[in-house]
């Protein structure tokens, strides 16, 4: 490693090509290692939280008192799966997206709980 100096006498190094390759490979490995680690953490997190969600309520639990109101359904729990492709007739995708958003808002339901079969402009 050849050592040079700046105007402020800071010691900085010039690398050979071989050393550069080594640092570059090491850097990529560190990035992959860190991100793979995060990926594994996410997978564990998903498994842990999904498992907790799927666990049924204990059977031996005492019945809730009648005067306690039932817990409202959580609105941000999305419906599973997709409803497939929508057929568009004389309607461009942007308009279709707007129409679906307006319908979902008017019905007060999340978009993925609704199924749109087709959108067609009616000309009278």
């Amino acid at each position: 490693m050849e050592v040079t100096s700046t105007a402020a006498n800071l010691a900085i190094s010039k690398l050979t090509f071989g050393e550069g390759v080594l640092y570059a490979v090491l850097g990529m490995l560190v990035v992959f290692f860190a991100l793979v680690l995060i990926m594994l953490i996410i997978k564990i997190l998903i498994k842990a939280t999904d498992k907790k969600k799927a666990e049924p309520a204990p059977a031996a639990a005492a019945p809730a008192p009648a005067e306690v109101p039932a817990e409202p359904v959580k609105r941000d729990d999305p419906a599973p799966g997709t409803s497939g492709d929508i057929k568009l007739y004389t309607t461009d995708p942007k308009e279709a997206a707007m129409i679906m958003a307006i319908v979902a808002d008017a019905l007060g339901k999340p978009l993925n709980e609704l199924r749109f079969k087709s959108i067609r402009e009616i000309k009278e």
Binding site: K14, L15, F17, G20, A24
Partner: peptide, 14 residues
């Protein structure tokens, strides 16, 4: 890392 390597080749300090 490719740009780092190219900069080393050109002669920039690390």
């Amino acid at each position: 890392f490719v740009a780092f390597l190219l900069a080393i080749v050109i002669g920039f300090p690390a």
